[in-house]
Every structure is written in C-alpha cells, then in structure tokens.
C-alpha cells in the first residue's frame, strides 16, 4: 500500500471535515487530490499538526477534524499521545502515514518505526483505545475510512511503502497565511461565527 491510495479513498468523502496536514509528502499529495476542499489547512512544520488538530476539535466539538501525519512528525511530538488519550476527543481522527523513513532527507534515512518502535502500541498505552495499524488497502477501508465520516477518536497508523509520487506533483503556490485565512473564513461561513483575531478592523 502507498499513501496516495489511502488519500484517494478519502478525497471523495470530504464534506465539511477540517483536514490538517503536517509538513510531509502527504500534504502535497492531499492538496493535489482535494484542492477545492476549503477545510484544508497546512500546518507548516513537522510535529505541530496533531496539537493544532486537538485545539480545533476542542473549539468546534461538532466538526470532524482529520489530521494527516507522518511517522517522523509523530516521533517529533510523542507528548501529544498522552494528551490525546486523556482528552479522548470524539471528533478527531489522526492518520499516521508510516513509511519508516525520513523521505525528506532525500536518502530515506530510517525512522524509529523501522526498528522496534510501534506507534499503535504507544498510542494504546497512552489511553487511545481506538488505535489500529493497517497494512493494506482493505484494512484501510475497514479501519481507516470510518475515521473520515464516523464518530469517536480514531488513531490509524497506516503502514505504507515509501513513495516519491509527491516529488512529481507541482508544489502548491499557496503560503501558510493564505491557507490560514481561507480556512478561517470557511469556518466563519460554515459556523456562523466571527473568529476574533481576523474580525478586527
């Protein structure tokens, strides 16, 4: 299984979900597959997307928040897992596309998950009951897609082969500020609220 196969299955299911991606190859693939989805937000650096997703899920408890992570990004912020387990947010799904390498290193340096580290086990030990690992497309359909449209806290570790498809895709010409404002205006419109800091004249 490669990451893009999972993302291709997710894209047609987008309605009003809020989708955050960390800075890894999946952000290029996802924003290429679902460029029109106004609920997309790029969180510019590794290790921050799950935290931002938790904050959004707390602020908007009736909206499904989906976080697209990589193994490298999760390993950079393992402190998220106990917080996630204890908050037990019913509207948050975290997909970890675990290819066991730092693709961005350009030489595929292995991550800890290529060794003995098991992210699902860490998640479970942190209190995330609905943590699973999927190894193929059928497993992703069964255990991953319910996290796109369903309820509850989902933590889905997707074991994927390293794929360099994202390097063939033109990089989005949208910067972090433009993503942020588009995202916030979308929230304002769909929630009927004014986000305080962008409402100031």
């Amino acid at each position: 299984m490669i990451r893009r196969e999972c993302l291709e299955l997710m894209a047609p299911l987008m309605t009003d979900q809020l989708v955050l991606s960390s800075q890894s190859g999946q952000r290029i693939e996802w924003f290429h597959l679902a460029p029109q989805h106004e609920g997309n937000l790029l969180v510019g650096m590794m290790g921050c997307a799950t935290g931002v997703g938790m904050g959004l899920a707390l602020a908007l408890p009736h909206r499904r928040v989906i976080v697209l992570e990589s193994d490298g990004s999760v390993l950079l912020s393992l402190f998220n897992l106990p917080t996630l387990g204890n908050l037990n947010l019913s509207n948050l799904t975290v997909f970890v596309f675990d290819n066991e390498v730092y693709s961005g290193s350009t030489m595929s340096e292995p991550t800890a998950t290529a060794g003995k580290t098991d992210l699902e086990a860490i998640a479970r030990a942190s209190g995330i009951e609905n943590a699973v690992t999927v190894h193929d497309v059928e497993g992703f359909k069964e255990h991953g897609l319910p996290g796109v449209t369903g309820e509850g806290l989902h933590y889905v570790v997707c074991k994927v082969e390293e794929s360099l498809i994202h390097r063939e895709i033109p990089r989005p010409n949208v910067d972090l500020a433009e993503y942020k404002y588009r995202f916030v205006r979308y929230i304002e419109r769909t929630e009927g609220i004014t986000v305080p800091f962008v409402g100031l004249g």
């Binding site: 935290g51 931002v52 938790m54 904050g55 959004l56 602020a59 402190f79 942020k180 916030v184 305080p196």
Partner: peptide, 14 residues
C-alpha cells in the same frame, strides 16, 4: 510546545 499548538488550533476555531 504542545500547549502552544493546542491553543493555536482553538484560536483558529474561534
């Protein structure tokens, strides 16, 4: 580090 990211997410959510 986590506290900042959670707060940021909540700010984006209103």
């Amino acid at each position: 580090q986590e506290a900042i990211t959670i707060a940021a997410g909540a700010a984006l959510g209103g």
